[in-house]
Amino acid sequence: MCGRYVVVASVEEIEKRFQVTAAQLPFDFQPNFNLGPGSLAPVITNDKPNELQFFTFGMTPFWAKKRMYLFNARAEGDGNMDNDPDYKGGKGIISKPSFRKPIRSQRCLVIADAFIEGSYAEGLDKPHLVYLYRRPFAFAGIWDVWKNPETEQEVHSFAIITTTANPLLQKIPHHRSPVILHERDERRWLRAEHLQEITTLLEPYPAEEMNAYPISPKVKSPKATGRELIEPVGERLQPELELRMKTELRLQGMGAGKRDHRH
């Protein structure tokens, strides 16, 4: 599962990296080192691929009678319930009631700088920060629009698609990993029309292009959002080459720079 992640890149950095323009923001966008369900987060949707938007993390399907927070969507659907990392079966997400429409026509890039994962036995009592050697990056996401039957207010929300654990996640150990898109596949994810092309992208990200280290269980509190949450409390799970050490996720300088969003 991926229920907490880190977003610290400035709006300007995201705009440059993904070649998008941010709409006027309804709030003061600040770095968040512990972004969880219910929070507004940056996304790029297939219907507005050149615009940076902010949707609620935790998807409510359009047909729901009340608010829901489906923050993850299993690529395998009801398949691979044992979470076998070597699973090669079908992508059952295409037939799940909550996801079968969004996976076909409502996909998005979920912008992140890192994510937080706990062990499958101890959860966030034993959390790790997982990062790529490039940032920011994009999770494969799906989105929907739900209208509150009482207030008529529309809620735009999203879920992150998960798949089998790669060798790095298995070291935590955790049984799932979010689908992280290669940079070359980001636009392909947004514009793909055929299910075979879409589901082909739902694979684990290469473990050699990422790393992780243990952090404090203080991250369990959804109210905690500060930089101190990602301070390492132990060694990295994989040794790093000197070249990668120069480009790894750095604690200092993350989220630097603010933007005046007044227009």
Results as ranks from 00 to 15, higher is better:
residue 2 C to I: 07
residue 11 V to A: 10
residue 17 R to S: 11
residue 27 F to K: 02
residue 27 F to C: 03
residue 29 F to L: 07
residue 31 P to L: 10
residue 35 L to K: 13
residue 35 L to C: 13
residue 37 P to N: 02
residue 39 S to M: 10
residue 43 V to M: 09
residue 46 N to S: 05
residue 46 N to W: 03
residue 49 P to W: 03
residue 54 F to C: 02
residue 55 F to Q: 00
residue 56 T to D: 05
residue 58 G to C: 01
residue 60 T to E: 09
residue 61 P to T: 07
residue 71 F to P: 06
residue 72 N to C: 02
residue 75 A to H: 08
residue 76 E to Y: 07
residue 77 G to V: 01
residue 78 D to W: 08
residue 81 M to W: 10
residue 83 N to L: 14
residue 83 N to M: 15
residue 89 G to M: 08
residue 96 K to C: 06
residue 100 R to C: 15
residue 101 K to R: 14
residue 103 I to Q: 03
residue 107 R to N: 04
residue 113 D to Y: 03
residue 115 F to Y: 15
residue 117 E to G: 03
residue 130 V to Q: 01
residue 133 Y to R: 07
residue 133 Y to Q: 06
residue 134 R to D: 15
residue 137 F to Y: 14
residue 139 F to P: 01
residue 139 F to H: 01
residue 142 I to L: 04
residue 155 V to H: 12
residue 156 H to R: 15
residue 167 P to I: 05
residue 167 P to F: 02
residue 172 I to T: 05
residue 179 V to W: 03
residue 181 L to C: 06
residue 183 E to L: 10
residue 187 R to H: 12
residue 195 L to H: 08
residue 201 L to M: 07
residue 203 E to W: 07
residue 206 P to K: 03
residue 216 S to Y: 10
residue 224 A to G: 06
residue 225 T to I: 12
residue 235 E to W: 07
residue 238 Q to P: 02
residue 242 E to S: 11
residue 242 E to G: 04
residue 244 R to N: 15
residue 244 R to G: 10
residue 246 K to N: 11
residue 252 Q to T: 13
residue 253 G to Y: 00
residue 254 M to E: 14
residue 256 A to M: 12
residue 262 R to S: 11
